[in-house]
């Protein structure tokens, strides 16, 4: 059994230690915010926070997560009470197909936790590992800037 702390709750899991965190989140814990995109750490759709930093959960085996704090999209807010970054993405309607957006939100969350007022260049650089194929980039940029302005 492996014990993980996800969104503040301790979860006991019976899984191979090399299992990617993403599979455990989606298949065992029904936390479907993080998405499977490429499975190779190349697209960012699976981004979650580990100890406040964004990581690609598809290439993060659960054996590396003992005693560490995992936060998923579901840990930032609820549909009734979305978190600050989630509200900003809704306000800017920063989604087209939406598949990359959970990863974008987590990546933005990680940025704002360490750099509350990032420049446009800092946002671009930080988000560069997350791909959007619909071309929603300008709205995503606006959403991150909005989140940085809001309390």
């Amino acid at each position: 059994m492996i014990s993980l702390e996800v969104n503040g709750k301790t979860q006991e899991l019976d899984a191979d230690p090399a299992t990617p965190l993403l599979y455990v989140l989606r298949d065992h814990l029904q936390l479907n915010g993080a998405k499977f995109g490429c499975g190779l750490g190349q697209c960012g759709a699976c981004s979650v926070l580990v100890d406040g930093r964004a990581v690609f959960s598809c290439v993060t085996p659960i054996s590396t997560l003992a005693g560490r704090r995992i936060t998923t999209l579901e840990g930032l807010g609820t549909p009734e009470k979305p978190g600050r970054v989630q509200r900003a993405f809704i306000a800017e309607q920063a989604a087209q197909c939406g598949y990359c957006i959970p990863g974008m939100i987590m990546q933005a969350q990680a940025l704002l936790e360490r750099t509350p007022h990032p420049t446009s260049a800092e946002i671009r650089k930080h988000m560069s590992g997350n791909l959007c194929r619909c071309g929603t980039h300008m709205r995503i940029m606006r959403a991150v800037e909005r989140a940085a302005r809001e309390p």
Binding site: A18, G39, V59, P61, I62, S63, T64
Partner: peptide, 14 residues
């Protein structure tokens, strides 16, 4: 081993 487990979950896919 520990390193092999990390390799399997982190590096091996690519």
């Amino acid at each position: 081993g520990r390193g092999a487990e990390i390799y399997a979950g982190t590096c091996a896919a690519c």
